[in-house]
Simulated scan of single mutants.
Amino acid sequence: MGSLYDLDFISKTIPTILDNSRVWYQVLSTAMKLKARGIAHVAGTNRIALKDNTHYSNLLLINRTASPLSWFMECKDRNNRSAIALPYSFLPSMAAKKLRDAAEKIKRLLGDYDAIHVRRGDKIKTRKDRYGDDRSLHPHLDRDTRPEFILHRVEKWVPSGRTLFIASNERTPGFFSPLSARYKLAYSSNYSSILDPVIENNYQLFMIERLILMGAKTFIRTFKEGNTDISLTDDPKKNTKTWQKPVYTMEGSEER
């Protein structure tokens, strides 16, 4: 946890402790002894109630998660935003200091830039139906995250000649090279001299890339998550559990 997030930085906004620390056991033990005066499980309670109800303000420990056994979760609930006491962008910005420093160095080198997050590998999954045809949970995603379609999609948001930072889990070398016909492309791999001394795992790399994405003049997500977001695809991010035929043409007809 400490290698990803700056707990002291987070604690300036909301006091934070790890669930395996000595302080945690002291707080939990004291809260359990105080019973109703020490702890409350408030899943589903909105932020207004938490702020205005004096009962909550005097408690030692508040568990906001769905399960009384779960003590940590990233601050997000897209179905009930009133239940979020902190903005969705809070936790991503609380990366460990060495990760924030690395991201700042790269952002300075990038200068004035735009960015896209292209999520492919883990989302582009197909399975055969009983007739042997491919089916996908995100029928347009493979098409919408290919370079030729990205060029068409982002031209209204990103002018030609701009520096475009790309963060992606696509593993094919040179996959995004066609975008260089219009943009100056940049990847985290271009900054290995900054990242190699810092990065120990892919989680840390993602944290840095996320900070770089957040610092772009225009940030284009793979999926639209908020009302003001712009995205590469109109497919919903949430798993609809509906397997559909993949679409590969602009007109929407399937290309075989």
Rank of each mutant, 00 (worst) to 15 (best):
R135I: 08
L61T: 01
P236Q: 10
K76W: 06
A36T: 12
S57A: 14
S253W: 10
L151C: 07
T218P: 04
N202D: 14
T54S: 10
D234G: 05
S11Q: 09
I199K: 08
S93R: 13
M94E: 00
S193A: 15
N169V: 11
K184F: 05
L69A: 01
L110C: 09
E104M: 11
K35P: 01
P92N: 15
P236G: 09
A66S: 08
R64P: 00
L61I: 02
R127F: 00
R120H: 10
S136A: 15
T126R: 13
E200V: 08
G121M: 11
F149L: 05
H138P: 01
N46V: 07
E254H: 13
K76F: 02
D77W: 01
K224L: 02
R182C: 04
K125F: 12
Y183G: 04
M214H: 09
Y5Q: 11
N239H: 07
L141R: 04
S93P: 01
S136N: 05
T30E: 10
T222I: 06
L164C: 06
S160D: 12
Q204G: 05
T228F: 09
R130E: 15
Y248G: 11
A115R: 02
F72L: 00
T240S: 13
L185N: 12
I194G: 12
P173L: 08
R127Q: 08
M250Y: 14
G174E: 08
G161K: 10
Q204N: 07
Y131H: 12
T16F: 03
S192E: 15
F175E: 07
T240Q: 12
A181V: 02
D142T: 00
D133Y: 13
G174F: 11
S253K: 15
D196I: 12
T13H: 13
K184W: 03
T242C: 06
Y187V: 04
K128W: 03
H117L: 14
P159D: 02
A115K: 06
R143K: 06
D229A: 07
F9L: 13
K35E: 10
I194Y: 12
G44A: 10
D77L: 04
K105R: 15
E209Q: 11
E104G: 03
N201E: 05
S180A: 13
N79G: 13
P197G: 13
N201A: 08
N46E: 09
D235Y: 08
K105Q: 15
L151K: 14
Y88N: 10
A95G: 09
S82N: 15
P246R: 03
L151A: 12
R146M: 02
V154W: 08
R22W: 01
I166P: 10
L195N: 11
D235Q: 03
N202S: 13
R171V: 13
L61A: 07
R78W: 05
T145I: 14
R100A: 13
H152R: 14
H117V: 13
M207N: 06
Q244T: 09
G132Y: 07
T233Y: 06
G252F: 08
I230A: 06
